[in-house]
Write a protein that binds this DNA or RNA. Structure first.
Lengths: 189, 189
DNA sequence: CTACTATTAGTACCAAGTGTTAGTATCGGA
DNA sequence: TCCGATACTAACACTTGGTACTAATAGTAG
């Protein structure tokens, strides 16, 4: 027994959401109805054709002008940011971030905090780190809170230099100069 | 005067990279040549047709949706090490290591691989990174395998300089010079 | 002049559709 | 039982943005 129209249509929605790359033909075979029926269903549900679906998915990535980075991709928590100017984040060092032997935070976590802060600072949807010169000034231990401050010091075309200083209390634990590369020139999104 | 074939083709590459949504027809008008010429150019440069371009852009975004994970403890797998001399590790870039937007590996993962390799290289139970100068030479994408090679280039008291080069295939993607600090002088484990 | 390259033109074909019209099947109700 | 609505299928013409191929032409170098 074939599914009813209602059932088919609601499954169709899921099917297409799940995989927008599916053609009417494939759907017709899947639901064992004619291609025309699928087309009618799409009409009724106002689901655009394959190419339009794909295009809109592609456009999202490509033309989305919003900000550099979804917030959940940042290591540490950003507490203040003024794009292309400065940004601040905090990062609480936990047991999983330290060496078992000496409970000193592993360098790459401090680097990651600073690096993602530098990325988040750049007002562009494609920001990459080109170079960095960093210094680990003092060991950081489990339980400490690292406050990282980033400041864009100069921009030359697509390259922006960001200075990052991380501290625990008043003590500087990490310093870094990041040369960031952006996809378009400053302001010219 | 029309541009030469070479000039046109190199501009064509940029044009399409800049906006993959452009049709042959638009390109033909832009360069004031026939559509066939544009097609021949694409053939020679093996640039896929509009739909394929859009599709691949869409596929990238779609595949990377809904994924974001905290960084792991194990950064790469060490496959060879000669203490205080050299070390090699491999790191397979997965979806969770890249930016959702553009599928480029986030810098701190490459740093983490290199940094932990430098740490592992030092024949001491307290090895810390003091400074580092790093360079991200080429973007790394999901699915690629990064091979990192570290070599101790000089030791001065408690400080050892380690040079790390990471490659995907034959292409260098990351270079770094790490100044490592150890708790005791060389040989004193 | 000939050989060769670059370019243009034209044809047939394809995928994955749209839009339209027409025909069939089936069920529910007066 | 017949009527009509709903669902489905079919057929045809047309669209976009191409591929693949062939043929013709213009210009230039040897």
């Amino acid at each position: 027994m074939k599914k009813t129209k209602k059932v088919r249509q609601s499954e169709l929605i899921k099917k297409i959401e799940d995989n927008p790359f599916v053609t009417d033909d494939e759907l017709a075979k899947f639901f064992d109805v004619s291609v025309q029926t699928i087309r009618l269903d799409r009409m009724e549900l106002s689901i655009p054709e394959l190419r339009e679906r794909i295009k809109s998915v592609a456009e999202q990535t490509f033309e989305d002008e919003v900000r550099s980075l979804p917030i959940d991709e940042v290591i540490g928590e950003i507490i203040d940011v003024e794009l292309d100017d400065y940004a601040i984040s905090i990062f609480d060092v936990q047991k999983e971030h330290v060496f078992q032997r000496n409970s000193i935070a592993r360098g790459h976590h401090l680097f990651a905090q600073a690096n993602s802060l530098a990325v988040a600072l750049i007002n562009d949807d494609l920001a990459l780190t080109a170079k960095a010169a960093i210094e680990f000034c003092k060991p950081v231990h489990s339980g400490q809170r690292v406050v990282s401050k980033a400041r864009a010091v100069r921009t030359d075309g697509r390259r922006t230099t960001v200075e990052v200083t991380s501290s625990v209390g008043k003590e500087v634990v990490f310093k870094g100069e990041f040369e960031m590369y952006r996809s378009s020139e400053k302001g010219g999104e």
